[in-house]
Design a protein around this nucleic acid. Structure first.
Lengths: 149, 149
DNA sequence: ATAATAAAAGATATTTTTATCTTTTATAAG
DNA sequence: CTTATAAAAGATAAAAATATCTTTTATTAT
């Protein structure tokens, strides 16, 4: 198991890609995005529709249309995307799957997980959606799954 | 998404339960374990068979049979169970699902994830399978999913 | 207005994960 | 050596996640 669902991995990579384009005022078409982040186009379309409905990205239809981010959206912490897609089990749930795990009624790993969850929450709250635009533009980091870059 | 698969959650809870019983020389039947950790009995049976094949737990058939852990098994770090069930994507994989994410060809969150992965790896390496036997015996921690405890 | 473009929406399909059912094998006790 | 017990193994089923196909709606440019 990875830390995020595949759906969420696609969502984050796509949002990073759209962010970088948006920073230079460009809209991105689904075909382009899917190719650039190496994801199934029609599945990604569904994911982006969902993010759009939830207000994390926006889009316009028709010629010259596409997905883009407003400057406010570029400032949002990445955790918003993760929460929108994977929910907040990663941030609030019990690591062993207990429904009523709490300080008073803890699972054996309660404190251990509290620390981990805190690290993850902090990390994803401290990076913004647009925070990697420059590194992406400079080609210092990659969003493509496979080697053909 | 949770951090572990449900299969892995069941596995860890079951192993903790068997560990505590093993510490006092007792074997545990699948029916008993499933009831005590609140998991689907026949599914759990499959999981334990797998752990048994992989040498993380052991069992004997027939009357007075059941699952148990040797003293060596009780000392194993919990990460062995997680690796056996969920693989090591959580410990080595790229957070964004890139196949060739590395120092030289990193994803945008490469360093951020390195820290998180390290925390998780350390935590699961530093707790042993038998490490909670006393707290479990004293009822200070719980393995049951639902409130009826 | 019309045609072309691109996302939205709805329906369906595939794959993986989770769960169950049935039969077989090993062990212990009478 | 027969019966009862309990795990192992194999087959199947249900649910959730991932992926694709088709139709509709909105926008732009001609």
């Amino acid at each position: 198991m990875a830390i995020f669902s595949k759906t969420c991995e696609y969502a984050i990579r796509a949002v990073f890609y759209i962010a970088q384009k948006s920073a230079s005022g460009m809209k991105s078409g689904i075909k382009d995005i899917a190719a650039e982040i190496d994801s199934p186009e029609l599945y990604l379309a569904k994911i982006l529709q969902d993010l759009s409905r939830k207000g994390l990205i926006t889009s316009t239809k028709g010629p010259n249309g596409g997905f883009f981010l407003t400057s406010e959206m570029l400032e949002l912490p990445l955790i918003e995307v993760v929460k929108a897609v994977d929910g907040d089990a990663l941030f609030t749930g019990c690591g062993l799957g207990l429904k009523q795990c709490s300080e008073l009624h803890p699972c054996p790993l309660h404190n251990e997980f509290k620390a981990i969850r805190n690290d993850i929450t902090l990390m994803l709250s401290n990076v913004s959606i647009g925070g990697f635009n420059q590194e992406l533009a400079e080609g210092l980091v990659s969003l493509k799954k496979s080697k053909t870059d």
